[in-house]
């Protein structure tokens, strides 16, 4: 789009994974639910924790910690599953905590490749700054479809 002006705001859901802050584009979020029973799926990729029943639909759930290469797999009372839909893929993402909905001006997001080359950039889109804090914006398309 042409009107990618600096003042155009986009809404993100601010989540925490292993003490770091991530932003997920609210446009792609379908639902946020508490963690209930997850059925393990044998032979599925390691980062797929299993499947859940979301109102009669079977939805796979991705363990973001595993995907990001964080060893320990902890879920707490704060943990949530964010249901996102990317193209025809509907999938749940486990995060440690959902904090709030934030607005970030598109212009203030720096491309991840400009920040550092040492981070795997397929899952990440860029880094945004909110109130002196930084938020890593997740690239859902890269995360799910690759």
């Amino acid at each position: 789009m042409d009107n990618k002006g600096n003042d155009e705001n986009k809404q993100y859901i601010l989540v925490k994974v292993n003490e770091e802050q991530y932003g997920i584009d609210i446009q792609q979020v379908e639902n946020i639910i508490k963690i209930d029973r997850i059925t393990r799926v044998p032979k599925a990729p390691e980062f797929i924790k299993g499947v859940i029943n979301l109102r009669g639909e079977i939805i796979p759930v991705m363990n973001l910690r595993m995907k990001f290469g964080i060893e320990e797999d902890i879920t707490t009372a704060d943990s949530r599953i964010i249901i996102v839909k990317v193209e025809e893929y509907e999938i749940g993402i486990i995060v440690d905590q959902v904090k709030e909905v934030i607005q970030i001006p598109t212009g203030s997001i720096e491309d991840i490749k400009d920040v550092t080359c040492e981070i795997n950039s397929t899952y990440l889109q860029g880094v945004g700054k909110v109130n002196q804090d930084i938020v890593t914006i997740i690239n859902l398309h890269g995360l799910i479809i690759q």
Binding site: T39, K43, G56, I58, P60, Y89, E90, I91
Partner: peptide, 17 residues
């Protein structure tokens, strides 16, 4: 029978859920 969804459809041994 429910499908496991687009993401997991290539799994062997599991026909659905």
């Amino acid at each position: 029978i429910k499908s496991l969804g687009t993401y997991l459809r290539k799994l062997k041994m599991i026909a659905g859920a």
